[in-house]
Amino acid sequence: MKWFKSPARHGYAVEMSPFLPNSLACATAQYYGIAGCGTLLVLEQRESDIQLARSFDWNDGLFDVTWSENNEHVLVTGSGDGSLQIWDTANPQGPIRVLKEHTQEVYAVDWSQTRGENLVVSGSWDHTAKVWDPERPQSICTLKGHEGVVYSTIWSLHHPACFASASGDGTLRVWDVKAGSCRMAIPAHKAEILSCDWCKYDQNVLATGAVDCSVCVWDLRNIRQPVAQMLGHSYAIRRIKICWMDATRRAKPKLRQGFEFWDFSRSPPLLDTMEHHSEFVCGLDFNLHIPNQVVDCSWDETVKIYTPQCLAAMQPSSA
């Protein structure tokens, strides 16, 4: 396991670069995000450790980060002052653009990965989601409908101009940006939903994680009940990711929530439990370039990179 320590900065989100296998970014905040400033850490994975490549400070806490899908040097962060910052790692002078329309904290940002699009979606405590062209100073549209904090916004990998959002109102919503409306609202949990993610290999499948300590897997073709539900975690599910798997394997994707790895196609679904942090884990990601490699960040001021044995053991055989 490799790790990086950032004194007095509590990790909120971490993401591996889609271009470079050893580059990653972490959004952090002072004083657990309650007060103080934030820092964007651009890190480099080495053979035996993680080194700081560059850091950028902002005057409020940074709660999420997403890499550009078009430029390996560009990132976007969301902060507690209601703004999005666009950073260029080759420019040490600060953000190259600041986008400010939200009236409360920006808690989620994501860069579209569908071909031909160059869009960022943001979710805020002001109950709205906004879609941005990073080259323009104003948002393209504002999506209203949630009755609570928007904690998570994730673009579909399959449908252009389509994203999902998860909210404190207990609903998972699917939005059509071209129509400027909500296509589907799912009462997914009887509690605040803190995270959602799309399946990379099935355009109809999403997963949600909530304050009720459960993970639910949803099929948009039948939303009357989840196709799978995973219980047993001791704390709220702050972040959930569906694993990128070898597409040749005929298996369901595995879910990682908090310190636990799940495979909802198995019974029992729990694969492994990791306990290598002393505070809450708020951010996690899978490395697209290195199979089964996971990165996470925690309020204990550390970023860690590791390969869980439970994932490595499930690699497809040569047969």
Rank of each mutant, 00 (worst) to 15 (best):
K2S: 13
M16S: 12
S23V: 09
E44I: 07
R46K: 11
S48K: 13
I50K: 01
A53V: 07
F56D: 05
D64E: 13
W67Y: 06
W67S: 03
W67M: 10
G78F: 08
L84V: 12
W87M: 07
N91F: 08
N91D: 09
P95L: 09
K100L: 15
T103I: 01
Y107Q: 01
N118V: 00
V121R: 01
D133K: 07
R136W: 01
T142V: 11
L143H: 04
G145P: 02
E147W: 11
G148V: 08
S152T: 04
S156I: 14
S156L: 13
L157P: 02
G170V: 14
T171V: 11
P187S: 15
H189A: 10
W198N: 07
Y201V: 13
A207F: 10
T208K: 06
G209A: 11
A210V: 06
C213E: 09
W218K: 01
R221G: 09
V227P: 01
A228D: 06
R239T: 09
K241I: 10
T248Q: 06
R250N: 08
G258W: 04
F264I: 07
S267G: 01
P268S: 10
P269A: 14
H276V: 10
V281P: 00
N287M: 07
L288R: 10
L288W: 03
I290Q: 06
I290V: 14
D296T: 14
E301A: 05
I305Q: 02
Y306V: 09
L311Y: 04
A312F: 08
A312Y: 07
A312R: 12
S317I: 14
